[in-house]
């Protein structure tokens, strides 16, 4: 009996300044395969469909259960995590490409440090006095926790930036993930004391006003985070903050 196989097409690029080539691999089908297993199969036998020896494909991956955010890529044109992309559910041949909105490092690996920089720029943290034992944290209504926890599950994968028409080389928009984090920290009793810093940051270039409501982010989010809700909520917060500071002559 002939083995069941399928084809994976991969966009390869050794470096950002080198030429692009597409490679096709024929892989042996097994039940419950995901895209990560495909890439490991290729690493174990890096010969293209035409029998040409290539190199293992470079890709990011870590937790393999969609909580670390590492393995985001374009799979059949859709920005998603490779670990949850099951071969059974994908149209063949499977097409793998790197995310396009971040600087390419190699093959499927991109540099998403922009997002971490933006989290820094927008003060996405709770400024505590120190790690000393100075008692309990503020009380929080369960309803606030139930709103905040889904936002706190953002894995900084970058899929929402990838699909956003306003995130590109012309525009410095921070993207929905960052705005949603600002909302999270502004929601926390201690974080709220410092919301002005975050809102000020989002008023600057690349800030919230860049969002033009294409609402792609929320559809691309693997964690189902209500990103458009966050964008609207923070839009309102920034506006109120802007008007208040203007009236106070700040």
């Amino acid at each position: 009996m002939a083995e069941k196989t399928f084809i994976v097409r991969i966009k390869r690029q050794q470096r950002a300044d080198e030429s692009v080539r597409w490679e096709e691999y024929e892989l042996r089908y097994r039940p419950h395969m995901n895209v990560i297993i495909c890439l490991r199969d290729i690493a174990e036998r890096p010969f293209t469909r035409g029998g040409v020896e290539s190199t293992p494909v470079s890709y990011d991956a870590n937790c393999l259960e969609e909580v670390c955010g590492a393995c985001a890529m374009l799979i059949n044109g859709t920005a998603r995590q490779a670990c949850t992309a099951l071969v059974d559910d994908l149209e063949k041949p499977i097409r793998l490409e790197p995310l396009t909105k971040f600087p390419l490092i190699r093959d499927l690996v991109v540099d998403r440090s922009k997002m971490f920089e933006d989290l820094k720029r927008t003060h996405c943290w709770i400024p505590i006095d120190g790690t000393y034992n100075i008692g309990e944290g503020p009380r929080m209504a369960p309803a606030v926790q139930e709103k905040g926890y889904p936002l706190a599950r953002c894995i900084t994968c970058g899929n929402c930036l990838e699909v956003c028409p306003k995130v590109n080389s012309n525009d410095s928009f921070v993207g929905a993930a960052i705005v949603s984090q600002v909302r999270l920290f502004n929601m926390h009793p201690t974080g709220a004391m410092h919301s002005a810093e975050r809102l000020d940051a989002l008023m600057g270039p690349g800030g919230i006003a860049e969002c033009d409501n294409a609402q792609n982010c929320v559809k691309a989010c693997p964690k189902g985070i209500p990103l458009t809700e966050s964008l609207a909520a923070v839009n309102g917060q920034v506006l109120v903050h802007a008007v208040k500071s203007w009236l106070r002559g700040e």
């Binding site: 943290w125 709770i126 505590i128 100075i134 944290g137 929080m140 926790q145």
Partner: peptide, 17 residues
């Protein structure tokens, strides 16, 4: 307590604890 102060979204009781 420290983690709570850092803003971890721990599940809460109705009393907010």
């Amino acid at each position: 307590d420290l983690l709570d102060r850092m803003g971890v979204m721990f599940n809460r009781t109705p009393e907010g604890l």
